[in-house]
């Protein structure tokens, strides 16, 4: 279990985290928020890289952490890189080999163990990053923007890795990509401006937007009542997807997690 209580963090005069309080139990959690909302800072605080200016963080003993940038050790092989992290996590030498290969199996890289890191694609390096986070049987796994720069196939692989972790450790994925959270996470924590806006499931977010999302024919744009928020223009159907508390021309549309997310974010801007 992870308990974050009234955590504050500032960079110079800028307050990045403003009293964040969270309790995360077993499951896959998505930390969702726009760029600059404090996701990475919160992840670093939880991982122990930063020390918060105020508040407390209680984490399990063993954690795995995948930061946004994991691009190291080009000269080492995949196995050696994993061995480096195994040594850092003080895994006994006799247990290292089995554990390293087990983690590489989980990310489907066991057959690349002897390849140099510099010879791997960006997606594979990312998977090595995930594998090192799995070393030492962590009770909490933190992954910051884990799918950044991954192609659709790699994203699918990542989704499978996360699915396999269900029922095991607490997993926290930080991202600004709503689809990732929708497809990977059981719970969503919405962070904005350094504070937690809401916590809940994907269904909770959808429910929040129910009755507020409209599909408006593009030629009726001039009939839209202010205030509204244009989510996107759908060129194929010739419609606009609009978020509004007021009735709008066109039909009510089935809300998505993204609609719920936008509703919260727009409510703050």
């Amino acid at each position: 279990m992870l308990e974050v209580s009234h955590v504050e963090m500032r960079f110079g005069q800028k307050k990045v985290l403003r009293g964040v309080t969270l309790t995360l139990r077993q499951g896959v959690y998505g930390l969702l928020g726009p760029n600059g909302s404090g996701k990475t800072t919160l992840m670093r605080c939880i991982a122990g890289v930063y020390h918060p200016a105020a508040g407390t963080i209680r984490t399990p003993e063993r954690i795995g952490y995948l930061p946004q940038r994991f691009g190291m050790f080009k000269q080492l092989t995949v196995y050696e890189t994993m061995a480096y992290f195994a040594a850092l996590k003080q895994i006994p030498a006799r247990a290292q080999r089995n554990e390293i290969m087990e983690c590489l199996e989980q990310v489907h890289l066991a057959d690349r163990a002897k390849d140099r890191m510099g010879a791997l694609s960006g997606g594979m390096v990312r998977r090595v990053g995930i594998a090192q986070a799995l070393l030492g049987h962590p009770e909490l796994i933190l992954a910051d923007e884990p799918t950044a720069g991954l192609d659709p196939e790699e994203r699918l692989r990542f989704k499978n890795v996360i699915s396999n972790l269900r029922g095991g450790p607490t997993v926290v994925l930080s991202t600004h990509i709503v689809e990732d959270v929708e497809s990977n996470c059981d719970h969503i924590v919405l962070l904005y401006g350094g504070t937690v806006l809401t916590e809940g499931t994907a269904d909770d977010l959808r429910a929040r937007a129910a009755g507020k999302v409209y599909s408006v024919p593009a030629d009726k744009r001039c009939l839209l009542q202010q205030p509204y928020h244009l989510l996107r223009e759908e060129a194929e159907t010739g419609t606009l997807r609009v978020l509004s508390n007021l009735p709008q021309p066109g039909n009510l549309a089935a809300p998505t997690v993204e609609d719920g997310y936008m509703l919260y974010i727009r409510g703050r801007t």
Binding site: I63, P67, M72, L88, Q132
Partner: peptide, 16 residues
């Protein structure tokens, strides 16, 4: 200085 510094420090919970 390295890109991996953050990961390494997290492995030791910032206490290394």
């Amino acid at each position: 200085d390295s890109d991996g510094e953050e990961t390494m420090r997290a492995c030791r919970r910032g206490k290394h």
